[in-house]
């Protein structure tokens, strides 16, 4: 099965829960954890592993053939990233860091003068910690298209999927392209939230996204305090989404987190057993 751990808000414990869940599942299954927070990947730190570089990720960028370019000025105005300045009668100016590789410039070129080159936008690493294998993607600073890293990692996952019983995908915060790319095609989404107004608000947003993507979802409340269901339960009810686990606030977990260590907890073990029973191969 492929399960995504997401949640909308940053800092709710997505990586803490994802790594703990991967370790719990790995007690009896073959588990691949994919760290899909390509802007700030942390799972390798929580798992205490050294990552090995396995792939450089490239993104296409336009290249102008000045033999066929008529300097007509058509390529710049269609670039929504403002990466191209094209003024009639002048050679186009291109700023590579802004380019998302969307292809509008080439599509709009009347003489077919634009072909594709490539720029390096990030790296995919692998790692191993006990029974958990890790794939970790990291975007270069100042590059805009983190979803490209996620898509390349997913291709690697698909090539290896028979080697694993479970793939856990730890997404970035937010509801943007990189999160959407990470959620695409998963069998279940665990939305990790915290019992605060901020957690509840951002949980709404991620549940709207998973509903739009028609992905079965459930909620995990992290840093749960006994009896405090007033903030998250109404959101769950409104979206008709099950609260699958409540990981209690504990000083021990906070201390582990501060040390950059993964955690274990009976609630996570129980969640892993439940997921294994529902989705196990």
């Amino acid at each position: 099965m492929q399960i995504a751990v997401t949640g909308g808000k940053g800092g709710t414990g997505k990586s803490t829960i994802a790594t703990a869940l991967a370790l719990a599942l790995a007690k009896k299954s073959r588990v691949l954890l994919m760290d899909a927070d390509a802007d700030c990947p942390n799972d390798h730190l929580l798992l205490g592993m050294e990552r090995q570089q396995i792939k450089i990720v490239e993104q296409r960028i336009p290249v102008w053939n000045m033999q066929t370019c008529t300097k007509c000025g058509a390529c710049g105005p269609v670039c929504k990233a403002n990466a191209i300045v094209s003024v009639t009668g002048h050679e186009p100016f291109f700023s590579s860091p802004q380019c998302h590789g969307c292809g509008a410039c080439a599509h709009n070129c009347p003489t077919g003068a634009i072909s594709w080159g490539a720029k390096e936008i990030g790296t995919i690493y692998s790692g191993k910690s006990g029974a958990v294998d890790l794939l970790s993607g990291e975007l270069k600073v100042n590059e805009p298209a983190s979803e490209r890293i996620i898509q390349e990692m997913k291709q690697l996952v698909n090539q290896k999927k028979t080697a694993y019983d479970h793939v856990i995908i730890d997404t970035a915060a937010g509801t943007h392209c990189d999160v959407i790319a990470a959620l695409e095609g998963v069998e279940h989404v665990l939305a990790v939230t915290e019992p605060t107004p901020l957690g509840a608000h951002d949980l709404e947003l991620i549940l709207e996204l998973t509903a739009a993507m028609r992905l079965p979802s459930s909620i995990i409340i992290n840093r749960y305090e006994e009896g405090r269901d007033d903030l998250i339960a109404p959101v769950a009810e409104r979206h008709k989404i099950e609260i699958k686990a409540r990981v209690p606030y504990s000083e021990e977990i906070v201390r582990s987190y501060a040390r950059g260590e993964s955690i274990s907890h009976p609630v996570i073990d129980s969640l892993a057993r439940g997921l294994d029973a529902s989705f196990g191969s």
Binding site: A81, N82, V85, V87, T88, S95
Partner: peptide
């Protein structure tokens, strides 16, 4: 026209002035 762009404001302005 560049002033309200999220990014690439300077390039947008150059294109505007060039035209």
């Amino acid at each position: 026209e560049g002033a309200i762009e999220g990014h690439g404001a300077g390039l947008k302005a150059v294109a505007q002035l060039g035209e």
